[in-house]
């Protein structure tokens, strides 16, 4: 995954401008800000709110509603392990227990790899048929 840039108000304004013509532009803007800076900084909220004629509370409400948007940047690799039913049926809980303490995991509910689980998304890349060894190897690569 590309290194996240340091937050800048100029870049934030550019991102907002790129989506301003769209119908319902808030989610595309937040996705691009999250993508560019690795999180949606507190200082970006008032700029977005001003540009879209929303209150800061409304923008904060949207950011906090969705699992994908974070107020602080992640440390290290983001490893989202699927914990949904199909991966449970294929042993994901035992896998999670085996790597506990070694790897920080975030839950995700379904990656559409339900006949190839356990599955995970590591910094945006999808991997399946995971074993504890392979997951540790990918996490520490």
């Amino acid at each position: 995954m590309t290194q996240s840039a340091i937050w800048s108000p100029e870049r934030t304004v550019e991102i907002i401008a790129a989506h301003a013509h769209r119908e319902g532009p808030l989610l595309p803007i937040l996705h691009d800000i999250q993508g560019a800076f690795g999180h949606v900084p507190h200082d970006a909220v008032s700029i977005i709110a001003g540009a879209l004629n929303l209150s800061r509370a409304e923008v904060h409400g949207v950011i906090s509603f969705y699992h994908d948007f974070h107020a602080a940047p992640a440390e290290g690799r983001v490893i989202k392990l699927c914990r949904a039913e199909a991966c449970q049926a294929r042993g994901v809980e035992a896998l999670a227990a085996a790597v506990e303490g070694r790897i920080a995991l975030e839950p995700v509910y379904c990656l559409g790899l339900c006949a190839s689980g356990p599955a995970a998304m590591i910094d945006g890349r999808l991997v399946a048929r995971l074993t504890a060894e392979r997951l540790i190897q990918l996490a520490e690569a």
Binding site: C82, A84, A86, C87, Y109, C110, G112, L113, C114, A115
Partner: peptide, 11 residues
């Protein structure tokens, strides 16, 4: 927005 676990037809 195919969120159901066990589904992947849309994908």
């Amino acid at each position: 927005d195919e969120g159901d676990s066990g589904t992947f037809a849309d994908r």
